[in-house]
């Protein structure tokens, strides 16, 4: 009897779990899409003025192509540090310190890191 009552419950919770998984996945690709938009925006990231990246138009070549980022930066925090303040790794860099100088807000920075990490 209990079991009978439980079964629909279980199905329901399974359904909820699946839904949750779908929404996180959607949220993730949303954040990547928004991160891409910020990275491309000339008034915010403008990353393509120096970096080639998959799918980007009219890119410059002052910096290395952004590819295989998960392989090059297994640790997301290291990638974030490069974008937030590249001077730490290379004091002579021409890459702007996006976090340290407030070029991107904290939220924008996270979104850009998500996007770059997906490349």
């Amino acid at each position: 009897m209990y079991a009978q009552q439980l079964r629909p419950m279980r199905t329901l919770s399974a359904l909820v779990l699946t839904l949750a998984a779908i929404t996180t996945q959607a949220a993730e690709s949303d954040s990547i899409a928004e991160g891409r938009e910020i990275a491309a925006d000339r008034n915010r990231g403008n990353c393509y003025s120096c970096h080639m990246a998959d799918g980007a138009q009219m890119t410059g070549n002052g910096g290395p192509p952004l590819m295989q980022m998960q392989m090059r930066f297994p640790d997301r925090e290291v990638l974030k540090a490069q974008i937030a303040d590249p001077r730490v790794r290379n004091p002579n860099t021409v890459m702007p310190p996006y976090g340290a100088h407030g070029i991107l807000t904290a939220r924008e920075l996270e979104l850009v890191v998500d996007y770059i990490h997906s490349l």
């Binding site: 393509y48 003025s49 120096c50 890119t59 410059g60 070549n61 002052g62 021409v94 407030g102 070029i103």
Partner: peptide, 20 residues
């Protein structure tokens, strides 16, 4: 805010493309 000297673009990056 973008932290460039004249030399960043016209010496360090000279000859590179900034966008196009």
């Amino acid at each position: 805010q973008l932290n460039f000297a004249c030399s960043s673009c016209h010496v360090t990056m000279v000859g590179n493309a900034l966008r196009a």
